[in-house]
């Protein structure tokens, strides 16, 4: 071997991969944060339901807390369960 890689410092950026560009509740882009947050990213994460719909965590929590009887996904009306 003429040359050998001893070590490598890789740099990568991350983005959310969601099935939509915007959050169905607040209509803001997933790239950005929910209306209550100032900074996107770790502070304002996304969550997926088992129905495969995706929202800002803060948005869906607000929605679920406001539901009195059954907790449904606002998009498909199926019962909301967090995807593991």
């Amino acid at each position: 071997m003429k040359v050998k890689i001893k070590s490598w410092v890789g740099v990568a950026t991350w983005r959310w991969v969601a099935n939509d560009d915007t959050c169905g509740i607040c209509r803001l882009a997933f790239e950005n944060c929910c209306p209550d947050c100032k900074l996107p990213g770790d502070d304002c994460p996304l969550v997926w339901g088992q129905c495969s719909h995706c929202y800002h965590m803060h948005c869906i929590m607000k929605w679920l807390n406001s539901q009195q009887v059954r907790q449904l996904c606002p998009m498909c009306r199926q019962e909301w369960k967090f995807k593991e």
Partner: peptide, 22 residues
């Protein structure tokens, strides 16, 4: 570790150490 995130590698920012054996 994290759900729903995609990584994009920034090669132009990455660096490493190369051993010249020749």
């Amino acid at each position: 570790q994290y759900n729903g995130r995609r990584l994009t590698w920034m090669y132009h920012l990455s660096q490493g150490e190369l051993k010249l054996c020749y």
